[in-house]
């Protein structure tokens, strides 16, 4: 699963655009993750410009 470090996230939506499963959504000033849709591919974790996302086993 993906954890959002909200104190790091600048809610830019970069991760949302690359999610192949449509599991992320930028709702105004926070990121919403649909854990049922997320397949733990880790792409969002890699592209985040600030390192706000973490893959958690």
């Amino acid at each position: 699963m993906i954890k959002v470090h909200r104190e790091i996230c600048a809610y830019c939506g970069c991760c949302v655009s690359v999610c192949p499963d449509g599991a992320l959504e930028l709702v105004d000033a926070y990121l919403d993750i649909d854990m049922n849709a997320c397949k733990d591919c880790g792409i969002c974790v890699r592209v985040c410009p600030l390192g706000a996302l973490e893959a958690k086993k």
Partner: peptide, 26 residues
Amino acid sequence: DGVESKFSRWCGVDTTVPFREIETCA
């Protein structure tokens, strides 16, 4: 709805950006 576009995806258009083709910026 911009780079984080979801609306078209919900309508059945795949808008996923290949991750090597996103320019990640600060």
